[in-house]
Amino acid sequence: MRPAIALTTVSRSYGRGDSAVRALGNVSLEFPAGSFTAIMGPSGSGKTTLLQCAAGLDRPDSGSVRVGELELTELSEKRLAQLRRREVGFVFQSFNLLPSLTAAQNVVLPLRLGGQRPKRGTARAALDRVGLGKRARHLPAELSGGQQQRVAIARALVAEPRVIFADEPTGALDTRSAREALALLRSLVDEDGRTIVMVTHDPVAAAVADRVVFLADGQVVDSMTAPRADAVAARMTALGA
């Protein structure tokens, strides 16, 4: 079966001249459809850059990124934006929501950006799924961190994307909210068959995934299927994180 996402010899550096930092060096990775992958590694190992390149948020200096049939490195900014609307959903660590829009408006934002007029109940259904049906009219400032994160997950669902990218989705949450958010993500893979790529620091979060990929200094150094939290933690300690 064709992987949902395939990265082939992707390199990305930041800065110029002497101050250039190599964030990714010749990384090749595949994310099978319907899988839940966690990406781990010490700070500065290139996790976030990998995610950005895979999601079409950033362009690699060289190499190829395919999402489904599409070669992202060949797409224009406009086509990339359209791809993000339809094929891809995002959940971030913080500042997930536009402060000026209500929860419901934030949820349907990708549809609105695509020029669609969302059907009645679309936002409500997505919010119900994350248990926030009653908070549709609240502004982000009126929601707790865990609730905001769940609104973000609802938004990642609304366009029914094949892939969801999550960057430290539990980083700013307390233990209980984190557990709820992770359970939600897990159910998206198990029940809806979506593909999730999640960057995290947290071995407990990584243990929810099917597979953990370890990065160090811009290289894939290891991977682990059916991960357990203690084994992940031990591997991370070995990497010096």
């Binding site: 999601a55 536009l98 402060p99």
Partner: peptide
């Protein structure tokens, strides 16, 4: 910047 970046991540084109 972050708001614009979020909109772009959500699929807003540069033109939008």
């Amino acid at each position: 910047r972050r708001e614009i970046a979020l909109l772009r991540a959500m699929g807003a084109t540069p033109g939008q």
